[in-house]
Design a protein around this nucleic acid. Structure first.
Length: 389
DNA sequence: AAGACGGGGGA
DNA sequence: TCCCCAGTCTT
């Protein structure tokens, strides 16, 4: 049995298996390149079950390239709320605008052109080209690297870019004539449902007989992958500022800067506590944190508040940061001129000389604003727990 | 090559 | 808890 036999066996058996076992997923009901593209971007680092409801809502709201290109970015971000990696949404809209302007609204079908679009890397390019246009391009994601590492007993570290390149070359050779779309999806489907990261279901695998990893008894030790660094811890004090009078029942929110973490999203104002601050359990910790919160908000944003009492705790883990949040109830005293708080309107700070950083915009949040502007999940949860709606 | 960039689900 | 998920971009 030589390598070529193992390769053709793999491709043939995998396609037969896929024909019987493929899941009925929404984006498999169409070959519309725009639909396929949306699904592939949403699926980056995100599970199928999570994506499905977003996929339906997003396409209902933005059914065509034109509709997405013409939408306000704010609405796109809102449709992405809770899905994470928000640069995906921003890049997707920039790319769709490019498709509208430069390609007459038709998603390009060449590797060079589609790869030039924002947010379209090697995986997404291959996925759209193969699934929507049946072009013989590999689409190598985490599933594919795992499946092929096991079947061909590859011990290279899949965290290295060079390893992905090598697996792409291999995956390209495996594509059966005229079957690129089905084959690539079959490979990912096998990884998602049978050749799983932990305790793979080898006994139901269509290619188990020639799987080198299983035959060596080390399938569950593959692929080799260097483990990520743990997220750095941060403690933050959050201001829960309830409006009075005209703004009764509404909460003061801030829009984050247009770049970086959670770009352009809305949140409750908060500050990073110095590591020298006492732990939350220590005596006097809350008093110290409340003083720091008051001083920092005033200095950073011209936002004057009087923290009164701790309200709740929350935690949130990003891939690279771990937040421990303590929310303090605050009395609103006022906001210095510059980005004013308008009734119902987003403050404008286009002027650069207002002494405030880009993105320092405040707004009283009520039901209407919650339905209009995007917040990260951690702040949505805090507002929900506080009974704001 | 390494870090930034969300959030959730399964073992 | 840890790991990983239909990754891409920046430095």
């Amino acid at each position: 049995m030589d390598t070529n036999d193992a390769k053709s066996y793999f491709s043939v058996r995998l396609l037969e298996w896929y024909d019987v076992h493929k899941r009925d997923l929404p984006w498999r009901r169409s070959r519309n390149p725009y639909y396929i593209w949306i699904s592939e971007v949403m699926l980056q680092q995100t599970r199928v079950e999570t994506v499905i409801p977003y996929y339906h809502r997003f396409l209902e709201r933005f059914p065509t390239v034109e509709a997405l290109a013409d939408a306000p970015e704010e609405q796109v971000l809102k449709a992405w709320e809770g899905l994470g990696y928000y640069s995906r949404a921003r890049n997707l809209q920039a790319a769709v605008r490019e498709v509208k302007e430069s390609y007459g609204g038709r998603v390009p079908d060449s590797k060079e052109e589609i790869s030039s679009l924002k947010g379209v890397g090697p995986y997404t390019a291959g996925a759209v080209l193969s699934i929507a246009y049946n072009k013989p391009e590999p689409a190598v994601d985490g599933n594919v690297m795992r499946v092929l590492s096991r079947y061909f007993l590859l011990r290279d570290d899949i965290a290295k870019p060079s390893t992905r390149i090598g697996i792409e070359k291999l995956a390209r050779e495996l594509i059966p004539e005229g079957k690129a779309g089905d084959f690539n999806q079959a490979l990912m489907e096998l990884g998602a449902t049978v050749c799983t990261p932990k305790s793979p279901h080898c006994l139901t695998c269509p290619v188990m007989e020639l799987c080198a990893g299983r035959l060596e008894g080390i399938a569950d030790e593959l692929p080799v992958k260097t483990k990520a660094k743990p997220p750095r811890p941060e403690r933050r004090a959050v201001a829960f500022i309830e409006g009075a009078g005209e703004e009764a029942g509404r909460i003061l929110a801030r829009q984050r800067p247009k770049e970086g973490l959670l770009a352009s999203m809305w949140e409750l104002p908060h500050v990073l506590l110095p590591e020298t601050m006492p732990e939350p359990e220590a005596a006097g910790a809350d008093a110290a944190a409340m003083r720091f919160l008051r001083e920092k908000l005033a200095a950073e944003y011209g936002l004057n508040v009087e923290p009164t009492e701790p309200m709740m705790d929350a935690e949130h883990t990003f891939s690279h940061i771990h937040w421990r949040l303590r929310v303090y109830r605050c009395r609103f005293l006022g906001l210095a001129e510059g980005p004013a708080v308008h009734d119902g309107g987003v403050a404008n700070n286009t002027a650069d000389d207002d002494g405030l950083r880009d993105g320092d915009v405040f707004l009283w949040f009520g039901e209407k604003e919650l339905g209009q502007y995007a917040l990260p999940n951690v702040f949505l949860k805090i507002l929900k727990q506080a009974g704001v709606r």
